[in-house]
Amino acid sequence: MNSERKPVRVVIVDDEQLVRMALRLVLDGEPDLTVVAEAADGDAAITVVEEQRPDVVLMDVRMPGRDGLSTTRELLTRPAPPRVLMLTTFDSDDLVLGALRAGALGFVLKDTPPSRIVDAVRTVADGNPALSPVATARVIAAATGPRSSEARRSSREAARRQLSTLTERERDTARAIADGLGNAEIAERLRITVATVKAHTGSLFAKLAVENRVQIALLVRDAEE
């Protein structure tokens, strides 16, 4: 880890004070992380994020009033939005996929060891997806498991409409992202430069109206069902 790196600014959003306190102790104990604020519900989170402009929001999924998914969607419509890591005691397929489709970059359970939560915050801060093993398994199961033919058709058609706006190279890049490749690996596969990969990825974000690579991967998977 680079000791000269500017500390990652984190906001913790959870309706349980003890959870917020525990997370603050864990994160503030790391030299490269600093908790700049806390919020107990979604509405307060939006206000705090506007004031503090954090790099990462550690967001509880289920809270009274505005829940974590709705709050995440709202935050990601704002200019220069933070990266969001969802944190919850629940691990249902709908919550995992809902969080990722809302724009979250990661999803970890509250019983995840503190060291892994710290690693997840760092990973998300760098713009990379961070899923707990349980969440990863559920995403795979949900993406490949049985759904009604109508639900599959609807998702497939919607995804294909979005992807139809892409150039051939942008589609190749999206496919590589869905395969889990990093920029260097995509460049090697497509025989282009890393700078070109980054340019294509930026175009994908704009054309598909997504915030991160996870959402691109989900769209590709939906289109191929």
Rank of each mutant, 00 (worst) to 15 (best):
Ala99Cys: 10
Ile140Ser: 07
Thr77Ile: 02
Val48Ile: 12
Ala176Gln: 11
Arg175Phe: 08
Asp15Arg: 00
Asp93His: 13
Val10Ala: 04
Arg101Thr: 11
Gln52His: 13
Asp67Pro: 04
Leu97His: 12
Ala99Phe: 04
Val11Cys: 03
Leu87Asp: 03
Arg152Gly: 01
Ala80Glu: 12
Leu100Gly: 05
Val194Thr: 15
Arg9Ser: 15
Val8Lys: 01
Asp222Glu: 14
Val57Asn: 09
Glu150Leu: 15
Val49Glu: 01
Gly103Thr: 05
Phe205Ala: 11
Gly202Ile: 03
Arg171Glu: 12
Leu109Tyr: 03
Arg147Trp: 13
Arg5His: 09
Arg153Tyr: 11
Arg24Asn: 06
Leu163Arg: 03
Ser132Glu: 03
Asp14Phe: 04
Arg66Leu: 15
Val220Phe: 00
Gly180Cys: 11
Thr136Ile: 02
Val10Phe: 08
Arg78Lys: 14
Ala217Ser: 12
Ala102Gln: 03
Asp94Arg: 13
Glu185Asp: 15
Arg138Phe: 01
Pro64Val: 03
Leu190Asn: 10
Pro64Cys: 00
Pro113Arg: 00
Gly127Leu: 05
Thr193Asp: 10
Arg24Gly: 12
Ala22Val: 10
Ala158His: 12
Ala141Thr: 14
Ala137His: 09
Asp91Arg: 08
Arg5Gln: 15
Leu166Asp: 08
Arg24Met: 11
Gly68Arg: 05
Arg213Asn: 05
Leu166Pro: 02
Ala141Glu: 15
Gly68Thr: 06
Leu95Gln: 10
Gly29Trp: 07
Val26Trp: 04
Ala135Gln: 00
Glu150Ser: 12
Ala44Cys: 00
Ile140Met: 10
Pro31Glu: 10
Leu190Gln: 14
Asp60Cys: 06
Gly180Tyr: 10
Leu75Tyr: 00
